[in-house]
Design a binder for these strands. Structure first.
Ligand SMILES: [Zn+2]
Ligand SMILES: [Zn+2]
Ligand SMILES: [Zn+2]
Ligand SMILES: [Zn+2]
Lengths: 146, 146
DNA sequence: ATACAGTCTACAGCGACTGTAGGGGCAAGT
DNA sequence: ACTTGCCCCTACAGTCGCTGTAGACTGTAT
């Protein structure tokens, strides 16, 4: 149960040192104990918490959603429907993005297939970017990070 | 052929006024003429160029790629293979992101299906986020914006 | 004792915008 | 001529989730 420094936590949880400090700054990791010289000290509970955050990020959850999930984790007697709602929202986001990207894939493929080479002036890829008429226009919503 | 103000260009090309000024600031739109009082003045060629940029953005191309495409557009006698290479790279990006998101979808679905309700302490969604062992780990690369 | 790796704070930068503050301009209606 | 109200201008801060940098200090191994 001896405390570990931020570097050890970093390799245990596979989250970069700078990212851990960033998470602390946005209130995701609480304020750790400090050694006499001011170094942050962590325990195994922090490894778990940080691994949880990492996996949630890998699943595409926003920091806000993760804050909510961590809040719920500390109240294990509450009904889990709040958790499931967050996960379902995330699934819906992922599926929406999938639909958008599938449309992009079709459009890009079509553009590339139509091009028979030659000069830029006659390139079908260029023409297709210039011309919106072949779009699945409703799929051209803003692509946000996910 | 009378010039239009930035607002007219904005509605003609469906790109926000602030975004047009931003594109100018990063060198994507050249430096427009100005009226005596300093207002930007555009012509129909700018509508086309800006629409091209918008469609390329909607297709997920980065600003750097779009700069390259615009550069190529002004040399219509070159071979179009450079264009096609950019488009193929973009398609590859889209397909990579699709694979990642499909893995996320499967993982989220499985988590949600496994949850039988009850308290947070026993929630399978929480458990699955805590436990990486059921992951398609290789699909957990960083999700970058696209 | 010295070298080297790790840690500290504070701040700037990324991409692709969006929003705000505080001003000036322009056409139509009265 | 004057007012109303929208349009335009610049310059800068904020968004998200980090990442990188600078410069100083600490901890450990040889
Ligand atoms: Zn081509
Ligand atoms: Zn399209
Ligand atoms: Zn549940
Ligand atoms: Zn996973």
């Amino acid at each position: 149960m001896k405390p570990m420094t931020i570097g050890r936590l970093s390799s245990a949880a596979k989250v970069k040192v700078t990212t851990i400090r960033y998470y602390e700054s946005i209130g995701l990791m609480g304020t750790p104990d400090r050694s006499a010289s001011g170094q942050r000290l962590y325990g195994s509970v922090d490894v778990e918490r940080l691994s949880f955050v990492r996996h949630a990020r890998e699943l595409g959850f926003s920091m806000d959603a993760i804050k909510d999930l961590i809040g719920l984790q500390t109240e294990p007697d509450q009904d889990c429907s709040a958790v499931d709602t967050i996960a379902q929202k995330q699934l819906a986001e992922v599926q929406k993005r999938l639909a958008q990207l599938e449309a992009l894939e079709r459009e890009l493929k079509r553009m590339i297939e139509n091009c028979r080479g030659g000069k830029v002036g006659g390139c079908q890829v260029m023409a297709a970017i210039n011309d919106h008429s072949e779009c699945e226009t409703d799929k051209h919503e803003r692509l946000k990070p996910l």
